[in-house]
């Protein structure tokens, strides 16, 4: 149980490596008619799964924040801590890979009028705010309440991000999986599915490790107080 997080992380990393290998060696390439930069399209195999993993992290962030705020559940606070870090890491991966792909495909890395790009970036910045903010404050009820409030309200952006390309197609392409308008080749879809499963396992592993880390940090603080009382 102690090493479950590490085992899952390793399994996820292996799956992600497999996804990368399949994406380069097995999945079909795209044509110049469909894409401005066919080679850069292969960013897709990690960009999309990292976005999925980020959305999962933000959802877990919401659950942890809400349960801490209303139930004062210690486990929930550790979930808030771990999922904010996971959201930051995967969000950054998605935004960075997306801007590079955007530069290659659209000629510009960013579009300030595209809802999905901006709401997703906002969620990533929210995670950064939570991670850095928590490190700048002493742990306590005021810190936890304040940051879990941000975690709860920030979740409003998640459905907005998800549905953005279904409602407005400004720059970011619309959904290609699970819709009748989707045009994804089945082999590409398979590689993408392996990627999504791998990243899911990876992020769950990371969150479990992160929660264990949060537990260790709290335990260390408690022991330090106990030791100081003793001396």
């Amino acid at each position: 149980m102690k090493r479950l997080g590490e085992v899952l992380t390793l399994a996820g990393l292996t799956g992600a490596g497999l996804t990368l290998w399949l994406g380069f060696t097995w999945a079909p390439s795209v044509t110049i008619e469909a894409f401005e930069s066919p080679e850069a399209q292969k960013i897709f195999y990690w960009h999309v799964p990292s976005a999925w993993a980020a959305m999962l992290s933000f959802s877990l962030l919401f659950i942890g924040s809400t349960m801490w705020f209303f139930k004062r559940n210690q486990w929930a606070w550790r979930l808030h801590v771990a999922s904010s870090e996971a959201g930051l890491a995967t969000g950054l991966m998605c935004v960075v890979s997306g801007t590079i792909w955007g530069a290659a495909e659209w000629g510009i890395p960013w579009d300030w009028t595209d809802i999905r790009l901006n709401t997703f970036a906002m969620l990533t910045l929210l995670s950064l705010f939570l991670v850095l903010g928590r490190r700048s404050q002493p742990d306590g009820i005021e810190t936890r309440d304040t940051f879990s409030t941000f975690g709860m309200y920030g979740f409003l952006l998640v459905p907005l991000t998800y549905f953005a390309t279904r409602i407005w197609q400004i720059r970011h392409p619309g959904p290609v999986v699970g819709t009748s308008e989707g045009s994804l080749n089945s082999d590409m879809g398979l590689v993408l599915l392996i990627g999504a499963i791998s990243f899911t396992i990876l992020i769950i592993g990371h969150i479990i490790s992160g929660m264990r880390l949060a537990h260790l940090e709290l335990r260390f603080e408690d022991l330090t107080s106990k030791y100081e009382e003793l001396i």
Binding site: S50, A89, S97, I100
Partner: peptide, 19 residues
Amino acid sequence: GQIYLAIAYLAMISGLAIW
């Protein structure tokens, strides 16, 4: 396109590894 691809994957792999 290949250079963009390389940079993107290097960034993602480094990010994952560091984290």
